[in-house]
């Protein structure tokens, strides 16, 4: 989400440098706040490393993570396999590198679905109010009363586990919090002067919703998107732990799930993917936290 904001920035020419301080671009101000937060910066670096591994790893470490390369359950360090091998004799390092892709894709895709459904429902409910709000919020409430993991399990069971179905299942069960947040923001902002102004000059509803209100409601939604990524990755791992996954796509959750029965003999095969998940979610949460602080006006004044 933040990426979408940044590219336009360098293009903006600074014509009169002396004039800057008063109207500093909001994103720049946010970035300065963010950069002051060492934990958040650490998260950003960590996430960059993980994404870099997902993108470049296969080139730097060409291997088929499914190939049997050494004796099963070899401990870390055996014959140059620095993380050891799993119960089949597959290279764990290759699994971690290639598995990062699926894990990140599920995390991002599920978070995207969460955010899109959440914003759509929340925005329409908060903007139109009346029966639209009534109906949408009742639907939201409906999804809130069902235990998310159980519902996701049923969904995955129904459509058989693949990256797509897992992402959809996670998205479908976790959008309600975002919807409530979006609605609250829309309810607040729609009463503000500039929105009333836009309406009075006859702007179309869709324009007001997406171009006037949404950008102003963005900060908390961006933060919630960052957390949604973390939640989705943990969710995928949880489903994998219950063996609801696609064994043809290497992911960290799959590694934990399929190595779990062997954990007493080869602790490393469960521990390393667990650490990988932990670090990724940690990175995303640190970033989310940093954004939260940076975007929170009250803290900004301090």
């Amino acid at each position: 989400m933040t990426d979408q904001v940044e590219p336009s920035a360098p293009a903006a020419p600074k014509l009169e440098p002396d004039f800057v301080p008063e109207v500093e671009k909001p994103w720049l101000q946010t970035w300065r706040m963010f950069a002051k937060n060492r934990a958040a910066l650490f998260g950003l670096v960590l996430l960059s490393v993980i994404v870099g591994m997902a993108v470049l790893g296969p080139t730097l470490y060409p291997a088929d993570p499914y190939d049997i390369v050494w004796a099963p359950q070899s401990p870390p360090g055996t014959e140059g396999f620095i993380l050891g091998t799993d119960y089949l004799g597959r290279d764990l390092l290759a699994g971690i590198i290639y598995g990062s892709r699926a894990t990140l894709i599920v995390g991002a895709a599920a978070a995207l679905i969460t955010i899109v459904i959440g914003i759509l429902v929340g925005a329409l409910a908060g903007y139109y109010r009346g029966w639209v709000e009534e109906l949408l919020m009742r639907i939201t409430e409906f999804f809130q009363v069902l235990p998310p993991l159980l519902l996701a399990m049923v969904l995955v069971l129904l459509f058989s586990p693949t990256l797509v179905t897992i992402s959809i299942a996670i998205g479908v069960v976790s959008w309600t919090a975002t919807a409530r947040l979006a609605r609250a923001e829309f309810l607040r902002i729609r009463e503000l002067e500039y929105v009333k102004g836009a309406r009075s000059i006859g702007a179309r509803n869709s324009r007001i919703i997406w171009l006037v209100i949404l950008p102003n409601a963005a900060p908390p939604l961006i933060v919630s998107a960052a957390f949604a990524v973390g939640i989705a990755i943990l969710f995928e791992a949880g489903l994998s732990f219950l063996e609801l996954n696609d064994p043809n796509i290497m992911s960290w959750g799959y590694m934990i799930g399929s190595n779990r029965p062997y954990v007493l003999e080869s602790w490393w095969a469960v521990t390393f993917p667990g650490i990988a998940i932990f670090l990724t979610v940690l990175a995303v949460s640190l970033i989310g936290d940093g954004l939260n602080d940076a975007l929170n006006p009250r803290l900004r004044q301090r």
Partner: peptide, 21 residues
Amino acid sequence: TLLALLGYSLPVFWTGIMLLI
């Protein structure tokens, strides 16, 4: 904050397995 983030970032079943072992 850090403690909270640690708790929040750990896969719950993984924590359980590790504690058990």
